[in-house]
Design a protein around this nucleic acid. Structure first.
Lengths: 181, 181
DNA sequence: CTTAAACATGTAATTAATTACATGTTACAA
DNA sequence: TTGTAACATGTAATTAATTACATGTTTAAG
């Protein structure tokens, strides 16, 4: 029984990535360090067993290839059933509002008065972090989507990068508002 | 050995909540449905065993009380050691930028062109969700912090509610920008 | 030629978190 | 008085996710 949990969203990300092009588990793991790392994270130790289960479930298949002399690779591809599953998932509503689980925010919750001397250093630290992240994302936008044509070809990717930038910009603005420098 | 994992942030939330006032496990579970539900979630099945471990670790203690005729309650309180641990946690830097794990955003990533007919309904659905959440949070701000004095007494709580409202407002603004109504 | 980084694939152990199972009390409304 | 929602506390089973263990190949720089 290759039954995969209902709320396991990693499987859909893998379906989506394989729909873009056939890839190895290693390639998928790298994608989580790069382009989708801002939105989801997964280690190879979670990816390889899941690929196995998804193949058992008939959603993907692999082809064995060899690089160089004898380095074994598995190129995974979507099956029609896997493609259907991806389309269904994207089309279905997403009614969950996930809590953000931001540790800094949690800490703030336990500070009682605006006179607490820890507030300002905390705000400054977070401002630095989010400013750095904002700069990073703005750089990414410029390199990944230098032209309007590039935006057209991966419109969803462009949208979520734009969203992430906006989110960081607003976070920075909010932090700045409470900084008394 | 009551050794609790390094990254388990729930324990700190419990320390923080008990620092506000002594509470039962049931009270804590309710807090995750109400005031901190926007930022963290935990079920009673996770809370009760953790309270036990934290008591074994000497961070909290409990007093048995009885409500009515024979309904047993455990009122938990911080020990000095637990209080120290809470203060240390709040004071220590929070250098992690947690990815948001927003399912809608994930789905967008796999949409290729701006002509895809699924985009507009998806944006509309999310707009409705975040608008509802925004209204809810704005209501909460008015009832929980009706006066400036109220804000002073739980300043951190006020800050994070303000932050959450701001976040929803910006999310709604971003969604609206891409809606072609 | 040697070595280090990147490529490539897996398993094992542990922790975090959710869902389901399980039981009993109290307050309040119909 | 009868039923139901809220109060109250726990355990069991399962899944998701991280960290550590484990092994071997290829490429490119020094």
């Amino acid at each position: 029984m290759a039954n995969i949990g209902q709320r396991n969203r990693l499987q859909y990300i893998i379906l989506g990535l394989l729909n873009q092009r056939p890839q190895t588990g290693y390639d998928l793991a790298k994608a989580f360090e790069n382009e989708i790392g801002e939105f989801w994270q997964a280690q190879h130790s979670q990816i390889y067993p899941l690929l196995r289960r998804m193949e058992d479930a008939g959603e993907i298949t692999h082809e064995d290839t060899v690089a160089g002399e004898k380095l074994a690779k598995k190129q995974y591809t979507l099956t029609p059933s896997g493609h259907d599953k991806l389309v269904d998932w994207v089309s279905e509503p997403s009614p969950e509002l996930t809590p953000s689980k931001d540790e800094f925010i949690l800490k703030l919750y336990f500070i009682k008065t605006d006179k607490d001397p820890r507030i300002q250093p905390m705000l400054r630290e977070q401002l630095r972090l989010h400013q750095t992240q904002l700069n990073h994302l703005e750089g990414r936008l410029k390199t990944v989507f230098p032209t309007d044509a590039a935006k057209q070809q991966a419109y969803g990717h462009y949208l979520i990068l734009d969203h992430a930038i906006e989110r960081e910009r607003d976070y920075v603005a909010w932090l700045s508002r409470y900084l008394t420098d």
